[in-house]
């Protein structure tokens, strides 16, 4: 995902701000990492460049 997506993303549970943690990126985008909501203590994974913003009960 591109970093500018952070401007429109929010925690799907509380709608609060997210903290971006990058583990892998290239010149174009973030490949893997997490988006963390401190209020809900929930991590949303970024995998293969796609942020997974589903609440935990919908992920699988």
């Amino acid at each position: 995902m591109k970093k500018d997506l952070m401007n429109i993303l929010a925690c799907p549970i509380c709608k609060g701000d997210l903290v971006l943690n990058i583990t892998k990126e290239d010149e174009k985008e973030i490949i893997s990492g997490t988006l963390y909501c401190s209020k809900c203590n929930e991590y949303y994974p970024i995998t293969d460049g796609i942020p997974n913003m589903l609440p935990p009960e919908l992920r699988e």
Binding site: M1, K2, L9, P12, I50, M53, L54, L58
Partner: peptide, 14 residues
């Protein structure tokens, strides 16, 4: 396509 895994509008900031 720039894609986000989400349930409808659930991922967007108000």
């Amino acid at each position: 396509v720039v894609v986000i895994r989400a349930d409808m509008f659930g991922c967007f900031r108000s």
